[in-house]
Design a binder for these strands. Structure first.
Lengths: 141, 141
DNA sequence: TACTAAATCGGAATGATTATGATCTCGCGT
DNA sequence: ACGCGAGATCATAATCATTCCGATTTAGTA
């Protein structure tokens, strides 16, 4: 996606367009490995030497609030984000930390949002499977 | 639940029966507010003065591995556990951190385990709604 | 082009969790 | 009942992802 298209995406959600934001949004959407803040920083620091890790944290936080990226549960104590456009579920291996994308079964979606009680305004839904992947299978417990 | 019943539960999953473990299992199952490790420690330290916070962490970890309690996503950077026997979904207010129990709609359960690809062995499933609760509603963003 | 609020930077501070190593104790076998 | 050994507990220190801070820079507007 070109820089001007990325800039337009930022404007569309009311965020100022800056160099770091374009670079980070691009990196998050390009990286389908559910990167951590540190992952993104390491991926960008070569081409953006002045980038600060604290900017990555702040920018990701702004993106999550704006709905540009989704936040996963922490894995191994690290925040992980998902910048893909089509929501899907995740399976997280509790042995090695690998994250697998799981296509949600549309007929078996989680409780539909309108059925939630009271005045809860829903920002996002996460469906996560704690698993042991085939790599780690030999000693599951 | 009596101490001997709690002890039996521990034995059933292959865990040694100790004073701290009985106290922590009791506290987790009694406390329906999805407590953090610190919450449990504070709840028990008066009656168990020698209890160590690190024991609470280690014991909770053992309980999660044994399937006695479930782990939720971190809220405000803290681990939260759920010791109730009947699994249910959760709505987490991202403004104030409150956690609400959501009764899952049985007709709309998440992807059934047998449909997961490959050799993934499923330990647990989490369905979590990020919400803004009615208390925090006025300024949702 | 000047102004202002917001964004960025770098480093220090925070704080939940984990690691460590020295006791203690449960559960088993004698 | 007693002793043994593996595992549990304790107290403290270390870790490290994340947040906070004040100073500086910059985007967007008039």
């Amino acid at each position: 996606m070109s820089a001007s298209e990325l800039a337009e995406r930022l404007r569309a959600v009311g965020l100022k367009v800056t160099g770091p934001r374009i670079a980070i949004l691009d990196a998050v959407e390009r990286n389908s490995n559910h990167p951590s803040a540190e992952d993104i920083y390491q991926e960008l620091v070569d081409t953006h030497p002045s980038l600060s890790l604290s900017t990555v944290y702040g920018t990701l936080s702004a993106f999550v609030k704006a709905g540009l990226v989704r936040k996963l549960s922490e894995v191994d104590g690290r925040l992980r984000v998902d910048g893909t456009k089509t929501p899907h579920d995740h399976a997280i291996c509790r042995m090695c930390g690998a994250i697998f994308d799981i296509e949600p079964n549309p007929k078996k979606a989680p409780t539909s949002l309108s059925e939630l009680p009271d005045g809860l305004a829903v920002l996002d839904v996460r469906v996560e499977y704690d698993v042991v992947c085939s790599e780690c299978k030999p000693t599951p417990f």
